[in-house]
């Protein structure tokens, strides 16, 4: 296993998979550490399919995924931990908020264990308070009782981020979370993601085809070409931000089979 960070311990997320979705096949090999790992590449290169495979929404046809030392998928060994049991948070391009539930209920949905007593009784008030607290953390407390269908793009993403954090995720998956936003909201949401990543000390995977996202947020870059990953590297935090995302030869192996 290639480790190009300074830490000798295994990375929290090890991905080495091939996934077929219809006629499309993507082969991805990379690892992610605490901080933001950007999966960067052109549209249609398989970034979202890779993310969906890590989420357990798709099954890999080859290879395995190890999250915090636990194999959550292994095609050869027939291991497929259900999405529900992977303890993830995810935000997609259009936020996927339930239209028939208020923002606070959307967040509460992911709080399955909060406010549940040993006898299994659900304390709705505790759950609600926790949901409002999470909304406050993403700057959306004032939207708790708003009409979900009338939220703006930026507001939707804030609610979706609060929901993603609600289940105490071991890994945060962000699939083009800013691409449907205007410039101003995009800048604000980037700062929010940066802050949440720093505070929560989570591995975060951010799928994007926007170089600005890479420059603003990447601690680590995994580069995609159509159908495969072509390299991964840490971003040197001492380099000027505007040069961080410039494509250059990567330091680690480009083959997905890295074992």
């Amino acid at each position: 296993m290639t480790v190009d960070g300074p830490t000798p311990s295994p990375a929290p997320l090890l991905v080495d998979i091939t996934t077929s979705a219809g006629t499309f096949t993507v082969t991805a090999g990379f690892e992610a550490h605490t901080g933001i790992t950007v999966l960067f590449g052109p549209s249609g290169s398989g970034k979202s399919v890779t993310l969906a495979t890590i989420a357990g929404l798709l099954r890999p046809t080859k290879g395995s995924i190890v999250l915090h030392g636990r194999t959550i998928a292994d095609a050869e060994a027939g291991i497929h931990i259900k999405t529900q049991d992977r303890h993830l948070g995810m935000v997609t391009q259009h936020a996927a908020l339930l239209p028939h539930r208020s923002p606070v209920e959307n967040v509460g949905l992911a709080l399955r264990t909060v406010g549940t007593s040993a006898q299994g009784a659900v304390d709705r008030r505790a759950r609600r308070e926790e949901a409002v607290r999470l909304l406050a953390e993403t700057g959306a407390a004032h939207l708790a009782e708003a009409n979900t269908t009338s939220l703006s793009g930026g507001e939707r993403q804030r609610v979706a981020l609060a929901r993603a954090l609600a289940g105490h995720p071991q890994l945060l998956l962000l699939d083009e979370p800013f691409s449907a936003l205007d410039r101003v909201s995009r800048t604000r949401l980037r700062s929010l993601v940066r802050r949440l990543s720093d505070e929560r000390q989570l591995p975060v995977l951010l799928v994007t085809h926007d170089l600005d996202d890479v420059e603003a947020l990447a601690d680590r870059i995994v580069e995609f070409e159509p159908g495969r990953t072509v390299g991964q590297r840490n971003v040197d935090p001492t380099r000027p931000a505007e040069r961080r995302g410039s494509p250059r030869p990567t330091t680690s192996s480009s083959e997905p089979d890295r074992s």
């Binding site: 999405t83 529900q84 289940g167």
Partner: peptide, 15 residues
Amino acid sequence: VDPTLEAAGRIAGLP
């Protein structure tokens, strides 16, 4: 029904 809504529920841990 938009499958991303159902996926969001699974990721949120709903059986």
